[in-house]
Design a protein around this nucleic acid. Sequence first.
RNA 1: GCCGGUGUGGCGAAAUGGCAGACGCACAGGACUUAAAAUCCUGGGACCAUAAAAAGUCGUGUGGGUUCGAGUCCCACCACCGGCACCA
Length: 663
Amino acid sequence: MRQWMLRITAYAEKLLADLDTIDWSDSLKEMQRNWIGKSEGAEVVFEIDGTRIRAEEEYEKVTVFTTRPDTLFGATYMVLSPEHKLVRSITTQAQRAAIEEYQKITASKSDLERTELAKEKTGVFTGSFAINPVNRERIPIWIADYVLASYGTGAIMAVPAHDTRDFEFAQKFNLPVVQVVEPPAGKDWQGFTDDGVAVNSDFISGLPTQEAKKKITKWLTDRKLGKKTINYKLRDWLFSRQRYWGEPFPIIWKKDAAGNLYHEALPESSLPLLPPTLEDYKPTADGQPPLARATDWLHLPDGSLRETNTMPQWAGSCWYYLRYLDARNTGAFVGKDVEAYWMGKSEVTKPGVDLYVGGTEHAVLHLLYARFWHKVLFDLGQVSTAEPFYKLVNQGLILGEDGQKMSKSRGNVVNPDDILVEYGADAFRLYEMFMGPLQDSKPWNTKGVEGVYRFLGRVWRLFVDETSETEFEQAETTATDKANVKLLALIALNASIKDVPASPGQLKPLHTCIKKVTEDLDAMRFNTAISAMMVFISEAMKWEIQPVSVLATFLQLLQPFAPHLAEELWSKLQALQAGAPATSLPYTAWPKYDAALLVEAVIEIPVQVNGKLRDVIKVAITATAAELEALALKNENVQPYLAGKTVKKVIVLPKKLVNIVAV
RNA sequence: GCCGGUGUGGCGAAAUGGCAGACGCACAGGACUUAAAAUCCUGGGACCAUAAAAAGUCGUGUGGGUUCGAGUCCCACCACCGGCACCA
């Protein structure tokens, strides 16, 4: 079957290097690094003994990949993957049956079986020998399924003394183990896989691992027996599917004069290419993808044929954030100006998507694929930035009430719809933000929703007159038209809310709250921002008169957390404020706090003796270090702890604390 | 096995190296009520003590270390969560 691949491996290096330029969590970056799996090493060419008849002929050769070329002198055998193309030609007559049997067994195993049954090493000797290029030693060539055809060259040199897998294999099949690395004192050289010093290795003996690698790689390169190589675990991306639902490829197939097929991209003028309407979405009888059923669509007037594979689901998720910027643009996938405005860097916007919040389940696939597409578009000059998502936050998983992952089988699923009906969207939203840090996984607790629901109730009662609410409720029960919005007009504000200037004692808690909420929003610490608002409300409930200006500012702070409630109360407040323009909350300027209002005249200073708290004293904020020290030393709760001791030192931090060191 | 993260009351959690447990849940006591719900007030880490308190001792997974002072910094270990896993 002919399939399409995207050459993501060509971007492996950029995808890896640019991780350093983006603000993602370490764990996420690490997952991508592991997925890309860069490893530096060398390819080494081994000749196969007995594969030439005359001296002037070349031997058959096998190339292996190793990250430890410095251990080449310790290679005591070689392993090819069972699928390696040379296996057939080098297998001797005596070994042929055993080899073919082993290949058959391997082929019948799934990838999963091959790795899960990995405890015990298996393999078969081919009967042939390779020649170690550094010392001309003959080493046996085996095949074994612990060597993967898809990685490196599909062949390895085995150094059992310094590789765990090779060591296990050598033990099982009684192959020789030769030490070529001297570990640090106290460690056994057998199975030692870290860096050490080369031994028994001719011209690299005595060199530390890193230098030994360089020297032997150069030696091999000079003699054309090998070269420095970088390998990636990242594979090219199989990008076609044989089903209907997916974007069709804008590709057509033609025949040249000799009758050979070749393909061409559709011109930009015939984009976007839409899928044809089909009655039947199944593949054709002869195994063609469903699109082949649309004969009118399939055949172009000039005799060429359309590609019938479709793209996988990933295709859309790789660029949707760009299309969203300019979704109605019929001339391009996104307008250049629009793209530059939203994705480019400016004084107000960060480069790329400002903030991307998503779950870890996308850590390697979606997030790597999207970065790849974006980089291709960037190299084509179609987008302004090299990365799509400079700042990314993984929200934590909400677990069931039992602390387990929610799942139907466990029966611990909480349906948001039920919560919305019971407590409303504001309470639901507020609770999710209040539960704890955004990035953490944490268990759901419906009682906790009641807590924030009660807080919203307190906010409501701070603003709304109770008797008017009762009237509203009665009117609502008797009303014939339940949806009558005018009934809401019955709800009146508390008489204690007045358009009067705020006192310093009222401004201080307000500005404390503005500061905390502002800072916490920036750092996405929603839980502590909400806590600050709870503290403010408890305070404001104690006041006899609530100035409109103070409550209005509070609503601005509440708006991002509980938008519906805040907007409703805001509209009521505006009626009280003479000449206030009728604006909607999200369009008002975010409040600023006045640091001067937060300063305390008298503060509490903890007094410690040898680091232990003994008293707290109240002092003027202006108290000097000398005054604090004097006050602390003569403090009656402190005195007993100084009795019979000498004061060695007194640590005084004005506005902070006093610590007396006494021995 | 390797990589990343997290360990603080009964529970969710706070805490620029400086009063551990803010805020919330659950719980207990009280007020209002004929009663309940709702609401409001009060209490609360553990231990020891007491009629009740005060005072005291211990306390942020475990063991060390740095510091006048460590939940916070350093070293070792344990447990849990997530990811990768014969990648040479």
